[in-house]
Design a protein around this nucleic acid. Structure first.
Lengths: 300, 300
DNA sequence: CTGCAGTCCCTTATGTACAAAAAACCTTCA
DNA sequence: TGAAGGTTTTTTGTACATAAGGGACTGCAG
């Protein structure tokens, strides 16, 4: 049976929407709600039925209205609103980065399924799509081998990243003045400055900003393979930022300042300045990443 | 139920092995056969039981021998010895490259499953792993959109290829004299010369040689992401060579000569010569590929 | 005639079942 | 005693069932 995490999330969102309305106010049309909640009308109807059950909305057909203005109905627990596939990724990364599994060991689908509380099918599908991240390998006879987050993985990752980033940064400098990306870059610069101002409170927001920035640079000359590669980068850095707490604030401050230099170089369109700033930033990202890898990276 | 294509392939292989033995000769041990046929001993035992049923081998336990020297038993049909997943890839590429499906259209799992004669699970798993080749995209709401083999796909593919190949070629030139790769390179050069000599008869063998050569170059400085990328290259070129028959012989001859120039440049270790030969080869590969793409590549 | 809700059908996601294949363990005989 | 065959246990690949969710079609009301 398919999980109804989508329904539950949308239901919770709908509860928030109704809370904004006055008692007795009419409910927006199903089509409108569908657009607002980003789900199909089928799901909206299911939600409306559930809300009617809960007494939150009254009436029926075209005469639906808010019955209780204060959100009396309890929302679904947060955990149930996350699709199984997302939870599996999170749990798997945790399992791997926490060192519960050694590099080179076999992955047992059934065991993981039990441990994560999902069906083996979900694990199987996850492993299949996770393969592209380079952290696991398929054995010829079936089954999967864990490669692990080793320093050789980090080195190989960073090597490709440097090639792609330098290429994209150059392309960015060649963008016509009219490109909307320049505006986005300036906005992103402002976001960096903002974050730097309140770094003590929000220093964990950097991970997201980092991903946005590097994807913006790549948008100068889109290439689906580079985009795909940035998914890997984003994943690795996301979890890396989550798990490696050492000097987190300092690391992020350094990175933000490097970004700013890099952004200014891009804005100046000076090729040498861009290359220098880009290389410098990548070099320090490399150091950070390698320091946190698990092993020697000596593998077959 | 799991298919027994593995058993059938190994059974056919085993039939060939027994045909080499004299009537009455003893059969190698189960362990040895398992290694020889590249399957587990469990499968070997199943094969031996089947062969005994067919009267090809007699005796039992430690006294098994060949009963009929001439291979009297019929092997399984070729088609049944290919795992479903491999057949699906072939059929899918055919379906796509033949133009049965337009770029941008939705992929219907059930329909494909029926058309290819497999269960939907197999299609699903295939699409999941095929995603990395960049020819299909996942829709946010589930399901897949066909991107197709467009010229923008080809251009993006080639761009990455050039970056990777130049990088690896440089690394190759820096290999120590003692590296075994130099020997392999010389062997590969000989294979090219051989093929050139009998090109009229064997010109289709080039596809395989091409893949071997480029993977060898990459082996100079292994990187799992580049390796993964070469899977894409190999796939595309493999099917491209199969489907684009126009000027096939001439194209291959040109490519072989370019390879020879490229190999000689590598052997000379001259950086400028390597870069020139590499670029020249990639440029003509690019032309060939782009000429055979299906559309304008104008997509969202 | 336009936007809405009612209804129906199609497709996909996920759990479960079961056979194939692998791997581990046990027994036997030269 | 060690290499072979016999037996049992695990694990994976594939089919199938079923609910969730998307989308098309229809008739109605303003």
């Amino acid at each position: 049976m398919k999980t109804d995490a989508l329904f539950k999330r949308a239901y919770n969102d709908a509860l928030l929407l109704t809370a904004e309305l006055q008692e007795g106010e009419p409910i927006p049309s199903e089509t409108l709600l569908a657009a607002r909640l980003a789900v199909s009308r089928t799901t909206v109807r299911k939600i409306l039925a559930a809300l009617a059950d809960q007494g939150v909305v009254g009436g029926g057909g075209r005469q639906r209205f808010v019955r209780i203005a204060t959100a009396a109905a309890a929302p679904f627990p947060q955990a149930e609103t996350v699709p199984a596939s997302v939870q599996v990724e999170k749990q798997f990364m945790e399992w791997m980065l926490r060192g519960d599994a050694k590099a080179g060991s076999l992955i047992n689908e059934l065991e993981l399924a039990r441990q994560f509380g999902v069906a083996t099918t979900v694990i199987r599908e996850f492993l299949n799509s996770f393969h592209r991240f380079g952290l696991i390998e398929r054995r010829p006879s079936g089954g999967w081998v864990l490669q692990g987050f080793t320093s050789s993985f980090a080195l190989e990752l960073i090597e490709i990243r440097e090639m792609f980033e330098l290429r994209s940064a150059k392309a960015f400098a060649d963008l016509p003045e009219t490109s909307p990306l320049w505006h986005e870059l300036r906005e992103l610069r402002a976001a960096h400055v903002d974050l730097l101002g309140e770094l003590d409170a929000r220093f964990q927001d950097f991970s997201h900003l980092d991903s946005r920035f590097h994807r913006l640079v790549n948008a100068a000359a889109p290439n689906r393979f580079i985009d795909g590669f940035y998914d890997i980068i984003t994943l690795i850095f996301h979890y890396h930022y989550q798990w490696n707490k050492r000097d987190e604030r300092e690391r992020n401050e350094v990175a933000i300042r490097e970004h700013l230099t890099y952004i200014d170089a891009l804005l100046s369109r000076s090729r040498p300045a861009i290359a220098t700033a880009c290389r410098k930033h990548l070099a320090s990202a490399k150091q950070t990443l390698i320091r946190s890898t698990s092993g020697t990276g000596a593998e077959g």
